[in-house]
Simulated scan of single mutants.
Amino acid sequence: MSERITRAVIRRAQPADAAAIARVEVDSWRAAYLGLVPAGDLNILSTQAREASWRRILSHGAATGTRAWTLSAEGAVLGFASAGPTRDEDDDPCNVGELYTIYLLPAAWGRGLGAALLDTAQADVARRRHRTMTIWVLEGNTRARRFYELSGFTPDGARRRARVGAGSLPEVRYRRAL
């Protein structure tokens, strides 16, 4: 990939994007979670399994309110995000939207592309009349936490354990008024 990205295009993801999304997700996990997630769990990540999952999500997302977007430059998908109504029992899905995922290829980090994807997801959630947006993030993922904090999100005190590979890791919830 070139050092400078002159034009990025964000559009709604389609089932045909499942393979590219899976590749971004697996590559991003392997880079972002190195040292947080056991290496064995990262090594067994399968783009084929993630592709099948994303194909289902993108084919049936309308039923759950899930929407996803890809970010491409020079004809290649560099990142994606997905959002919809909150899945948390302590929040009202009519008022609270949730950023489910946001990932970029590691070579695209630090270029403002994640902020563009986040802005797209936030605008969509706001158009659906949600007043607040949340995101769950691994507690030890300081890079992501800094990104969300710079984007106006703050920890709201909620914590949970996320199943990751054979184990679980602590997550914290961030929240932002829209």
Score class of each variant (00 low, 15 high):
S2E: 12
E3D: 14
E3W: 10
I5M: 06
T6H: 13
T6V: 14
T6R: 13
I10Q: 00
R11T: 15
P15Y: 05
P15F: 02
A16Q: 15
A19P: 10
I21M: 13
I21G: 11
I21W: 09
A22M: 11
R23D: 14
R23V: 02
S28N: 05
S28K: 00
W29K: 09
A31S: 15
V37R: 06
V37S: 04
A39V: 14
G40A: 12
I44H: 06
Q48G: 12
Q48V: 14
A49I: 13
R50P: 08
A52Q: 09
S53C: 03
S53Y: 11
R55P: 00
R55G: 00
R55I: 00
R56F: 06
I57C: 03
H60Q: 06
G61C: 02
A63C: 01
T64F: 02
G65N: 06
T66G: 02
A68W: 02
W69I: 02
A73V: 09
A76H: 08
A83L: 02
T86A: 12
R87W: 02
D88Y: 03
E89C: 13
D91C: 15
G97T: 14
Y100V: 03
Y100D: 11
I102A: 07
L104C: 08
L105E: 07
L105V: 03
A107T: 11
G110S: 06
G110F: 04
R111T: 08
R111Y: 05
R111F: 04
R111I: 07
G112Q: 11
L118A: 06
D119Y: 01
Q122Y: 00
Q122W: 01
D124H: 14
V125S: 11
V125F: 02
A126R: 15
R127Q: 15
R128W: 12
M133A: 15
T134A: 06
I135V: 14
W136P: 15
V137H: 09
E139Y: 05
G140S: 06
N141G: 10
T142V: 12
T142P: 07
T142N: 12
R143F: 10
R143M: 15
A144K: 04
R145K: 08
R146T: 06
E149A: 12
S151P: 02
G152V: 10
F153D: 10
R160P: 05
R161T: 09
A162Q: 14
A166C: 00
G167A: 04
E171H: 10
V172R: 10
V172G: 07
Y174K: 02
Y174W: 01
